[in-house]
């Protein structure tokens, strides 16, 4: 059969190109334009070169929130990934109990972010919240509104509560995809539970885990709503993460120039990390 060369189909992609240009590329270009100018109004804009970038990179407030952001994402991954794997391993494999577990796990994922923040804000209060009340009556000096360590603990616990399900569901689907013959071979070899996990389940989970790590890293790195509702970034600045600092700067103070420079630096960090994960995933696939 003769192959027909017809490239007209490319025109069908055109609407997407126009949409993406309108919604992503042109706004991003505008941000770049804003980041090199001091803008007072439409007619009063002065070119300042890299001054905002220098301000941003040398601003201790932003450096602190960047460090906090990395620490937060690190702990999120450190807790949620092993916990998610453990939950997935302990879930029933079939029957009504499996369906029940899946539904229960999916519930936290369905709750809107600001509602999660509100739930935990009430839950953690020492006067009317069950969690705060219990801790206080167990003799612990807990107050997320005034103690930075308690605030961090609560924000992390909230994130773990909200998102571990995602990792667990991903791992669960990965585990179900392992053919039975692997387990049969393992039982013939009388492999221990640990050996089965280490040499069968974990390698088979690799690709879903990379996706899970990527999703959890990106989400936690861009977290805004939950800590904003729960602690408002406080006490002091102790739970103010990057996006909240950015919002304060861009909307609170209306410093468009520095906020634009900050956005682009933020964008470069996210781009680098996403690219690293993407490359890892695609090269793992090739290795297979």
């Amino acid at each position: 059969m003769k192959k027909v060369v017809n490239n007209k189909a490319w025109f069908l992609v055109l609407p997407v190109v126009v949409l993406v240009a309108f919604s992503a590329i042109i706004p991003l270009m505008t941000v770049v334009n804003y980041s090199v100018q001091d803008i007072f109004d439409v007619n009063n804009a002065y070119f300042v070169g890299a001054e905002w970038y220098r301000d941003i990179l040398q601003n201790p407030r932003l450096q602190d929130s960047l460090v906090r952001q990395f620490i937060f994402s690190f702990f999120v991954l450190l807790i949620e990934i092993p916990l998610g794997i453990a939950v997935a391993l302990m879930m029933p494999t079939k029957g009504a109990r499996a369906s029940l577990c899946l539904i229960l796990l999916a519930i936290p994922l369905l709750i809107p972010l600001n509602v999660v923040g509100t739930i935990w804000q009430v839950f953690g209060r020492t006067d009317i919240g069950l969690f705060g009340w219990t801790l206080t009556h167990l003799g612990m000096d807990y107050n997320y509104a005034s103690n930075p360590i308690d605030a961090w603990f609560t924000v992390l616990l909230m994130d773990v509560w909200h998102w571990t399900s995602l990792v667990a569901l991903l791992c669960y689907s990965g585990l179900r995809a392992i053919p039975d013959v692997y387990y049969q071979a393992a039982s013939i070899d009388r492999a221990s539970g640990w050996a089965i996990f280490r040499y069968i389940q974990l390698p088979k989970l690799q690709s879903v885990l990379v996706i899970g790590v990527l999703l959890r890293f990106m989400d936690s790195f861009m977290i805004y709503t939950e800590p904003f509702v729960l602690t408002g970034g406080g006490p002091g600045n102790s739970t103010t993460f990057l996006s909240q600092t950015l919002t304060q700067m861009a909307i609170g103070q209306f410093d468009v120039g520095p906020a634009a420079a900050f956005s682009l630096i933020y964008f470069l960090i996210v781009l680098l990390v996403s690219w690293l994960f993407f490359t890892t995933i695609s090269h793992m696939d090739k290795a297979k």
Binding site: I26, M29, T30, N33, V36, Q37, I39, V42, A45, F47
Partner: peptide
């Protein structure tokens, strides 16, 4: 294109 606040270096 005034709203995009173009400058020569960014262009």
């Amino acid at each position: 294109m005034n709203w995009m606040a173009w400058t020569l270096p960014t262009a």
